[in-house]
Design a protein around this nucleic acid. Structure first.
Length: 419
RNA sequence: GUGGGCGUAGCUCAGUUGGUUAGAGCGUCUGGUUGUGGCCCAGAAGGUCGUGGGUUCAAUCCCCAUCGCUCACCCCA
């Protein structure tokens, strides 16, 4: 038997209503903030991701689905959305139409990692990108959108974490400071952290290993080394978040993994999922547009993992979706009326009703059982004595009341149903 | 890539200290009088007990391998 590829999942009809529910909320809230949806291709030139996300990151280094197309070009299935959005922004000069471009998306992403709870190889994200303003108020607003969406989904066990990485310059200075601090302690670090020391020293703060955390106890914090501008901006973000009632924690260890982040970074985590507890993450990326060949354009955005969020919703039992139901089930009493039934059904469907009937020549009892299973509001009996008299029985499935309706008066059926 | 757990009907799971025809609940299908659901009742279909090899008179059960799923580390949404 051929099965779905490791790390991919079928979304079955029973799963889809929950996705629609989430997507509707995402669209609603982004629209309230006047964001417009953008859809970019599922694959891009590999170099786009290498240049934006960073050659040294795990995503680019070992997790991308990369292949050659017929022309020999290196193509990659998108592992995240920001690079593609910024590419499209530059390519179509979206910034020329207005100063600030506000975009959102819902899309599959691909990363070749080992699957676990809340992590798939094809997964889905929604997110937003606001390109064209350096205002820290926009940072706070971005966090508000993210937070409001999760709240609207009924999630409660949430923690908003924020941090500032400062400008590239402050970050480089800080890395040097940290290197100096750790230099004589380097040998005592865990194996993983020794690697981080060379590759991405900031990530050492993320270590879950006790020895590392002990060694870091007196380490300098990036947040204390911020340049004036970054510090002012960060203070404004905090002030604004407080004004709009978003509870947050400052997490000086919050280092986003992608190279393009600067200044504000944030993450919202859930206490109701497994080890992969970050439901969403984002931050400011003021240098990316220029890095990809556009004009210098400050921007801020976030990306949210839909599977993780739905997992949290399930574990918190945060929302319920209605069972699907149909308006009317047509019951064929006499075998020879098969065509008449389908004719009636198509007429009712064209009038906009949700209609079902039996295609398997089953008994009236079986048809009724199915009508019940589909949660039909009405059953319409076609055939028998009343049919010969030009009538059909319309049965209300809740009250079990029946009434006779003329066969040629379909609008009376509809009137009954539309009430 | 490293490590732990698990693979028995469509689903959730029992089970056998190795021994005749492998079970339950849910779901599916049929029927419970002539044309009417939900509850109830009766019955049916559905399993190479993940796969391959080994031990044994005998393996779903023990051993080995393999594949798959799952959780955790790394990293990230």
């Amino acid at each position: 038997m051929i099965k779905a590829i490791k790390g991919t999942k079928d979304l079955l009809p029973s799963d889809v209503p929950r996705w629609h529910y989430l997507e509707d909320i995402v669209k609603k809230i982004f629209t309230n903030f006047n964001y417009k949806e953008i859809r970019t291709p599922i694959f891009e030139l590999t170099s786009l991701f290498a240049r934006s996300i960073g050659e040294e990151t795990d995503i680019v280094g070992k997790e991308m689905y990369t292949f050659e197309d017929m022309s020999g070009a290196s193509i990659t299935l998108k592992p995240e959305m920001t690079a593609g959005v910024v590419r499209a922004f530059i390519e179509h000069s979206l910034g020329a139409q207005q100063q600030l471009t506000k975009l959102y998306y819902i899309s599959p992403m691909f990363r070749q990692e080992k699957p676990q709870a809340g992590r798939l190889r094809q997964f889905h994200q929604f997110g937003g990108e606001a390109i064209g303003s350096a205002s820290p108020i926009l940072d706070a607003e971005m966090i508000q959108i993210a937070f409001d969406i999760l709240k609207s989904l009924g999630l409660k066990d949430l923690t908003v974490k924020i941090n500032s990485l400062g400008t590239t310059e402050t970050r480089e200075n800080f890395k040097n400071l940290l290197r100096e601090f750790l230099n004589d302690k380097k040998d005592k670090l865990s194996e993983d952290s020794k690697k981080r020391f060379d590759n991405n020293i900031l990530r050492i703060f993320d270590s879950k290993i006790e020895i590392d955390q002990k060694l870091l106890a007196d380490a300098p914090a990036l947040i204390d080394q911020l340049d004036d501008e970054s510090k002012n901006d960060f203070d404004l973000v905090k002030e604004y978040l407080t004004k709009i009632n978003i509870p947050f924690e400052i997490d000086p260890h919050l280092v986003r993994g992608l190279d393009y982040y600067s200044k504000t970074t944030f993450e919202i985590i859930s206490g109701k999922v497994g080890a992969q507890d970050a439901l969403l993450g984002g931050g400011r990326y003021d240098l990316l547009a220029e890095q990809l060949g556009g004009k210098p354009t400050p921007a801020v955005g976030f990306a949210a993992g839909i599977e993780r969020i739905l997992l949290a919703c399930e574990n918190e039992n945060s929302f319920k979706v209605d069972e699907l139901s149909i308006d009317i089930y047509l019951i064929r009493i006499d075998k020879e009326l098969e065509l008449k039934v389908s004719e009636l059904a198509s007429e009712l469907r064209r009038k906009g009703l949700r209609v079902e009937y039996d295609y398997l020549q089953r008994s009236v009892k079986a048809q009724m059982r199915e009508a019940n299973k589909f949660n039909a509001r009405f059953a319409l009996f076609i055939g028998g004595g009343e049919y010969e008299e030009g009538k059909m029985n319309l049965k209300d499935m809740k009250t079990s009341e029946q009434k006779l309706i003329p066969i040629d008066n379909i609008s009376e059926v509809i009137d009954n149903i539309k009430i």
